[in-house]
Simulated assay, not measured.
Amino acid sequence: MLDQFGRSIEYLRISVTDRCNFRCQYCMPVEGLPWLPKQEILRYEEITEIVRQLAPLGLRRLRLTGGEPTIRPDLVALVQQLKAIDGIEDIALSTNGVKLPQMARELAAAGLDRVNISADSLRPDRVKAIARRDLGFDLIAAAKAAQDAGITPIKINVVVMRGINDDEVVDFAALTRDYPWHVRFIELMPVGELRELTWDHVVPSAEILSRIATLGELRADAGPPRGNGPAVYHRFAGAPGSVGVITPMTHTYCSTCNRVRLTADGRLRTCLFGDHEVVLRDALRRGEPLRPLFEKALAEKPKEHELLQMRVGGLRALSQVGG
């Protein structure tokens, strides 16, 4: 499972729906998007079959994304099906956390290993403003529900936006001194139709680390014991959790990219911000083997993204590909 540049691809992000119960400023237009027709969306059995065909080629790690994956009915059943596939070692979930208090134990029992919770504020009024929905989200309750269910490690993803939530980075970092959670600050990625958020809203990772260092000395750290992503981690002395930064704008990490993405309608996208993709759904529904298509996709996977040039491959919103 090597691409044309010798990168080992063992990680698949699976978007199970394009829909979301939030309308986060950096992710989806407030009016939403034209939703995919139901017949175009992969059934759980089809997702499972795709993974079953790719696992013998070296696929080992999966992440379920959306939109918001927990709003698709019976997500637990998909986790169970994927967990039963030989070769799959790790299943993670990216979620806004709204439904975690109700779903965490069932997901853990089905085989979910890890969870990433998107949380861009600790203040209810700001959560409502950034998400442009008021669903009563409580980060602490969501993370504790996952922790109590035995899902670990727990990562908290914070998209930092200047003038919107950047004054909370110290408060988020402080959580890692009290809980065994891993807070990751992500540089804003202005894309598609969401360009009311611009370079002026980007807070570089160096500035973020400088601000949170006011809490105490930060030391380089390995971060959580399991993970697939490009975060660089630090830790306060004696802290049970860690602080990470993800830097798509100031320091690209394309040279170590280990992933591809499966969209909700069955397109294998080889770069989040590229325009290269291979349609798997149609071949799957015709009963054709997927290996030739997957090998073609890896042979054409681009060397790096073009986000800094604002060329994002027709991507209207991050919600379309699960971020």
Rank of each mutant, 00 (worst) to 15 (best):
M1V: 15
D3S: 13
G6R: 14
T17W: 10
T17R: 04
R19E: 07
N21V: 00
R23F: 04
C27H: 06
E31H: 15
P34W: 02
P34L: 11
L36H: 01
I41F: 12
L42P: 04
L42N: 08
Y44I: 01
I47V: 13
R52Q: 12
L54N: 02
R63K: 14
G66P: 03
E68Y: 07
T70H: 02
D74P: 00
A77C: 07
Q81R: 15
A84D: 07
G87H: 07
I88F: 11
D90N: 15
A92V: 01
A92K: 05
G97M: 08
L100M: 12
A104M: 05
V115G: 09
I117G: 12
D120L: 04
R123W: 06
K128C: 06
R133I: 01
L135C: 09
D138F: 07
L139T: 05
A142F: 09
A143E: 00
A146T: 02
D148T: 07
A149T: 00
T152A: 12
V159S: 11
V159L: 09
R162F: 10
G163L: 04
N165V: 01
D166K: 03
D167V: 02
D171A: 13
L175G: 13
Y179M: 15
W181V: 04
W181Y: 10
F185M: 11
F185A: 13
G192C: 03
G192D: 02
E193L: 15
R195A: 09
E196Q: 15
W199D: 13
D200M: 10
H201K: 08
H201F: 04
S205D: 11
S205Q: 12
I208N: 10
L209M: 13
I212C: 09
A213H: 01
T214A: 15
G216F: 10
R219F: 11
D221M: 05
G223I: 06
P225K: 05
R226E: 04
A231I: 06
H234K: 07
R235V: 02
R235I: 00
P240T: 00
V243H: 13
G244E: 04
V245L: 14
I246A: 13
T247Q: 14
T247R: 14
T250Y: 08
T256D: 15
T256H: 13
C257E: 03
R269A: 13
T270C: 10
T270S: 12
G274W: 07
R285M: 00
R285H: 01
E288T: 00
R291L: 11
R291G: 08
F294P: 03
A299V: 05
A299D: 07
K301Q: 02
M310V: 11
R316E: 14
R316Y: 13
L318K: 08
S319W: 03
V321D: 06
G323W: 07
G323H: 10
G323F: 11
